[in-house]
């Protein structure tokens, strides 16, 4: 088991996207989750000082390994193309690797002792994987902190702003923070969600793919 220090954004998104009781992914647009994972990887690299972004482009600042194999793999992909591309373009490229990002993040959460893996068969044929929670401390702590932020008027710290932005982009925030109190603070949540430029680009990228496409995208059930 690896120590449960601060989770990466990729791990946080993978963890918060799981239903506590069933260990299955919460219902959300598949495409949104793919982009959120891709965005989470970019946010991790940005917070670690390996990349920087603005509304026009993503820039690699350093290719020094982060020590995290998932993030280092993503950094290699970014560094392989020195042409400045907008964040939205990179999200599209990385979202194609979201199955790998998701599996790697789930594996890491199992290694950290937060989740356990359960394999079963449906109709004796189809393999189903679930991730029941072993240690719910991290998930409860993050949800409590973010809920307080939404309901209050305090400034977020940059990590919380990034996480909220990613959760809003893939519509997980609406699932996690549902309820009359949170609904009454929809404007506040929308305002907080804009505070991270990469998270904002995740939302924009999903919107750009079109509501029609999102409507046709299968839901994770």
């Amino acid at each position: 088991m690896i120590p449960s220090l601060q989770l990466t954004f990729v791990e946080e998104i993978a963890l918060l996207a799981l239903d506590d009781a069933s260990g299955k992914r919460l219902p959300m647009p598949t495409l949104g989750f793919s982009y959120a994972l891709a965005g989470a990887a970019l946010c991790d690299l940005s917070h670690l000082g390996r990349i920087d972004t603005d509304p026009a482009a993503l820039t690699v600042l350093s290719t020094a390994p982060t020590g995290d194999p998932i993030l280092d793999e993503v950094l290699k992909v970014l560094a392989a193309d020195r042409t400045p591309e907008p964040v939205g373009s990179w999200l599209g490229i990385l979202a194609q690797r979201s199955a790998w990002l998701e599996a790697a993040a789930d594996d890491r959460l199992v290694e950290r002792g937060i989740l356990r893996r359960e394999e079963s068969k449906v109709l004796w044929v189809f393999g189903v994987r679930r991730y029941p929670t072993v240690d719910n401390h991290e998930r409860i702590e993050v949800r409590t902190r973010l809920r307080a932020l939404i309901l209050g008027d305090d400034l977020p710290d940059p990590r919380d702003a990034t996480l909220l932005s990613l959760l809003c982009a893939c519509q997980l925030a609406a699932v996690i923070f549902r309820g009359p109190e949170s609904n009454a603070r929809a404007d506040r949540l929308a305002s907080l969600a804009k505070l991270d430029l990469v998270g904002r680009e995740v939302s924009r990228a999903i919107d750009a793919l079109g509501k029609a496409l999102l409507g046709a995208s299968p839901m994770r059930l």
């Binding site: 940005s46 920087d52 603005d54 400034l155 940059p158 702003a161 505070l195 991270d196 430029l197 990469v198």
Partner: peptide
């Protein structure tokens, strides 16, 4: 940039 914004917010 986004890194600068983060320092402002932080």
């Amino acid at each position: 940039s986004s890194a600068g914004l983060r320092v402002f917010l932080g």
